[in-house]
Design a protein around this nucleic acid. Sequence first.
DNA 1: TGAATTACCTAACAAATGTTAGGTAGGCAA
DNA 2: TTGCCTACCTAACATTTGTTAGGTAATTCA
Lengths: 209, 209
Amino acid sequence: MTDRAAESVNSEKSEVGRQGILNAAALLFRQHGYSGVSLRAVAQGAGIKAGSIYYHFASKDEIVTEILNAGILAVHTEVIAAVDALPDTAPAATVIHAALRGHLRSLLEHGDYTSANVRIFGQVPEAVRDANLSARRSYETYLDGLLSALQAEGGLRGDIQISRIRLMLIGALNATLEWFDPAKGGVDALADDYADILLNGLLAQNGAR
Amino acid sequence: MTDRAAESVNSEKSEVGRQGILNAAALLFRQHGYSGVSLRAVAQGAGIKAGSIYYHFASKDEIVTEILNAGILAVHTEVIAAVDALPDTAPAATVIHAALRGHLRSLLEHGDYTSANVRIFGQVPEAVRDANLSARRSYETYLDGLLSALQAEGGLRGDIQISRIRLMLIGALNATLEWFDPAKGGVDALADDYADILLNGLLAQNGAR
DNA sequence: TGAATTACCTAACAAATGTTAGGTAGGCAA
DNA sequence: TTGCCTACCTAACATTTGTTAGGTAATTCA
């Protein structure tokens, strides 16, 4: 690594602290994966020395655990806010669209923590993964509730399992992380297309936008 | 690591060879990511000692490169076979369904190489990634050709970019790797659902299966 | 028979890893 | 002033990493 890309992130105050370490770590984890990031790299990114990390954290896994949980909490919160901003009378298509856009915004715009979660969850030691399961389940349960309410109202098809719809939805959204380039078109336009396809399908005979 | 899970994979012949190393490495990479797998672990998985790997390969990256290319080639080949087995008169929905099922089968059934590719492509050194780009582009070009032919026939909607459809499709399919459990329902049933949703959408007013 | 080749092994190397022990400068309270 | 606390630093540790050099047993070929 000719790592010129890891200068101090902190400048405002001379104090880096817990949050400075987490911010630097989240950015690096998202880029290089779990085993690909050393604590020395995290320290350099935060603007401190490696040993100093242990003043704030007991281990690398403690850092990762905190980042994973913050990542899920961030999407969950943003999606709830997006959905709650709608009137109760909003049709299924509108609700799905809003939720989906909230998820994508959290992932692709304000999202080192969320994107780090998506990227490294599968590579992390089992104990760390387990510590993230509760937050994940909470978000999944929320989405399932949303989807089944829409299904009960008659807005969504009833012939496909809710959990399968949710898995497909989250999977398709998270996968955008691998190729999305904010310079080549906005997140909201992406959300429009994804909602359109997922709601109306790809066949020509179904309604266009 | 209390690694009990890494016994010799080879039993037939007393020769491990290039292929034995690749097989063991693909399995491990898919499970633990790129930096998460040491050459000593690969060697143990293959049933040889670490130093012996260098008789067949010049570096870890050479192994990874070969696995990545084999992974793309495997899906590409399987999807082509699935589509070519259809009559020329097959409607768009049938073609998409077959391609999608082929991709999922390669990923979830015969697929240590393909799934290793999906899992570690984003974590690998840039030089290794570059060495895989040509194979990737070839598969992408094939899919784009397929989709635009269907669009030209009037089977698929024309108001959404082909590349966006392809990215969404591949993304949604590859994401199944993270949660799919072959013990809990077959790959083909999964393919049916995914094709159904992608073609007809989730809204109640669109046609059911 | 003997020479060469193949497919492995052993043992070591420098570098990088997570982690720990002990030190230090600055701020705050008494 | 003294003493404590906070937020860092330095220097080292044991282990693991990719990689290399040199050796060996079995097979193939002349």
